[in-house]
Design a protein around this nucleic acid. Structure first.
Lengths: 232, 232
DNA sequence: TTTATCCGATATGCATGCAAAAGTGCGCGC
DNA sequence: GCGCGCACTTTTGCATGCATATCGGATAAA
């Protein structure tokens, strides 16, 4: 496990931005960060440049600033993810997928069912991510795959972002069940090469995240998951 | 015009990759490039990291390599652009745009007409880019705007990439006329808040670039515009 | 001839030095 | 009291030094 310092700094900073630990508008000073993290400014700079490319930081003259994300930006990021994932499954459906791939997807669906049944959220999240990745891979489009992965890095746009989970257990469980139904129908659509249906379902599937965010916002108990959102 | 060296290196390298001057698979050695361009390795490294983020380079252990783009990747990039621009105009149509914005778009349409009439390709390209940017901006979604801009950086995905122009003048002129008709209908759709129509039109509009690429490939005179495409 | 291995050459990752630019705070003038 | 300007401090962008990892080639063995 070679731990490059620039990578380590990148992960750490990305986490801090996405978690809201670093508030929008915060000026990031490479020199200060380097002292903080015990490495030199070079790897820090590299991490900052990468994060700028990911749209999490903004570079003004002389310095990086944490981007402010309004609630609307969060919704836009979620929709973007849905759009890109939708395009990927549409492509997969048009192209047609092998029986082996369909069997694999079905196996993943069963595993997800089990995780939901057992209420194992961590397990669900992991399986869910794997399911999405597998589905996207079936597009066999390197560019789409890369762009989807990139969209996952936007705030709350990753398929495993579930800010509801500590707010309303019943509602959270319901959203898992609904999401799983989406999963099933998406696999069905891809299997039957119904590309438009696959696309529409995937877009709608992402919209579940909208609901979760809305719930978290409504229960405005300073939900720590929403710390990154710029409250105007 | 303060020319930061890292910026200058970035532009230069990006151009070299997109133009195919640097072939896919080429190993980029920071030390060599720094000697070549007369700057130290630090700004070169920064440029390389940025280009990796743009998907033009791939970072393997110890070093950057120019990404290989197959023809299929070019088409995927074009479709991606259409998808994102389509999402933007759909949003614009749903949101509704001001009379002033519509007037502005119509003025741009007239300017484009004039450029086509006069056969001024450079002028057309510039106006076309401005038209697209203006249209996208009407989505008022920072995230969509950023992603569209990003997609422009992918090979041949920018709205001004016209590899046909030296191949078949009549066909090229026809594609401009057809594109302009798309433009008009897109403005119409946005004006009338017909979001689905705007989306579909924009997706199809991007497909014009497919045709141009196809033509360039068919006239396989080692079209220099296609040098970047990895010939298998 | 092919394959494995060692070793020198070279490039990379990171640290740090330096000049220039940006930011900060203070006092002065209005 | 408020805004402006000036000097000081900090930070950045870039260059470069150094240790380590990687690559390429030659040699030796099968």
């Amino acid at each position: 496990m070679s731990e490059l310092q620039s990578q380590s700094a990148l992960y750490q900073l990305r986490r801090q931005v996405l978690s809201g630990e670093l508030r929008g508008g915060t000026k990031l000073r490479a020199s200060h960060l380097s002292a903080d993290m015990g490495v030199s400014r070079t790897p820090i700079s590299e991490a900052l440049i990468t994060l700028e490319g990911e749209g999490l930081l903004i570079r003004d003259k002389s310095g990086f600033t944490v981007r402010r994300f309004a609630l609307e930006d969060v919704f836009d990021a979620i929709d973007l993810r849905g759009l890109l994932e939708g395009a990927a499954v549409r492509r997969a459906a048009e192209r047609g997928v092998s029986d082996a791939a369909i069997a694999d997807l079905n196996a993943r669906l069963h595993a997800l069912d089990a995780a939901i049944e057992q209420g194992d959220v961590a397990q669900y999240d992991q399986l869910n991510l794997g399911f999405h990745n597998q589905l996207i891979a079936l597009s066999e489009s390197d560019i789409l795959i890369a762009e989807v992965q990139r969209s996952y890095r936007l705030p709350f746009a990753g398929p495993s972002a579930f800010p509801t989970q500590h707010t309303d257990a019943a509602r959270f469980r319901a959203s898992l069940i609904i999401g799983q139904e989406h999963h099933r129908q998406i696999v069905s659509a891809v299997t039957q090469r119904e590309s438009a249906r696959a696309f529409a379902l995937m877009c709608e599937h992402a919209r579940l995240a909208h609901q979760n965010v809305h719930v978290a916002v409504a229960a405005r108990q300073d939900a720590p998951q929403l710390a990154l959102v710029d409250r105007a």
